[in-house]
Design a protein around this nucleic acid. Structure first.
Length: 261
DNA sequence: AGACGATCCTGGTTGC
DNA sequence: TGCAACCAGGATCGTC
């Protein structure tokens, strides 16, 4: 699932393929994934070049030489691909960008959970959509302060993009596994030490995942992700992982390793 | 305001 | 083997 590290890879991919290229035409194959009308979309994208590509959480913002930014979210099965020959058009292509060098960029979405949008500025978009700062650029003090007065399970908070963005389901499980904390632990039961640990593990998981280019197989062996499946075993205790639901999401937990407070 | 459950969507997996 | 039922998940919306 594209979470912060995967989306960072998509950003780098776009930077090395479509940055500074001019869009001569767009083709919207599935209008449902477009948050603006097709005429508005075409008006602001066609004829413009992509001048900068940044990422906040799981969102990518492509600055155009026009007035707007193109906002891209990949949902749970999204991707994009740069290609030239028509026969190479990827399956599940939903939107196509044609460039003046003959290449195309396909926005791919298998389960249609992603979308494209336009915005005047990144800050404006963050305000309008309650999108907090990127997990990698949130300070420890801001993170700890944002936990004040909350009682929900810590995992639910990590999944919430409002104060800190980029963490999705597998990362939340990974962070809490490495923090040795049970995902259902209420925030108000966490010690100051726990909060610091969680913050550090957020940074650690993000950094390692990006360094390994989001290839799960290359992650260190103590990472939960290798065993995050039915019948998976805890790396530390050798016990079978439990599958529970937290915040409405499937959650893997090693009950002996991860303390519930 | 914060918490929480339902909803969207469809390919892949599981179960009979 | 074939088909139906279920599952996955991020963000959003409505409700308490």
């Amino acid at each position: 699932m594209p979470e912060l590290p995967e989306v960072e890879m998509y950003r780098i991919y776009a930077e090395s393929t479509v940055l500074h290229k001019k869009v001569i035409k767009t083709e919207v194959i599935d209008t449902k994934l477009l948050k603006v009308s097709i005429p508005t979309f075409k008006k602001h994208i066609e004829g413009q070049s992509f001048s900068a590509i940044t990422r906040v959480g799981k969102y990518i913002f492509i600055k155009t030489t026009g007035a707007k930014y193109l906002v891209v979210h990949f949902g749970m099965t999204g991707n994009w691909q740069y290609f030239k020959d028509d026969e190479d058009i990827p399956k599940y292509t939903k939107v196509l960008f044609y460039f003046d060098n003959g290449f195309k960029l396909s926005y791919i979405s298998k389960r249609k959970f992603g979308w494209l949008n336009l915005t005047d500025s990144i800050e404006q978009f963050q305000q309008d959509h309650n999108l907090g700062s990127d997990a990698l650029s949130t300070s420890q003090s801001a993170f700890i302060k944002s936990l004040d007065g909350r009682k929900s399970p810590i995992k639910s908070f990590l999944l919430n993009q409002k104060t800190m963005s980029g963490i999705g389901n597998w990362m939340a499980d990974e962070i809490l596994y490495q923090s040795k904390l049970h995902p259902e632990t209420p925030i108000n039961h966490l010690s100051e030490e726990d909060k610091k640990t969680i913050y550090q593990k957020i940074q650690h998981v993000c950094e390692v995942a990006i360094q390994k280019e989001a290839n799960y197989d290359d992650f260190p062996s103590y990472f939960l992700i290798h065993n995050r499946k039915k019948g998976g075993i805890c790396y530390h205790t050798g016990d079978k992982l439990e599958k529970i639901t937290v915040g409405g999401r499937g959650t893997f937990v090693s009950t002996k390793w991860q303390v519930k407070k």
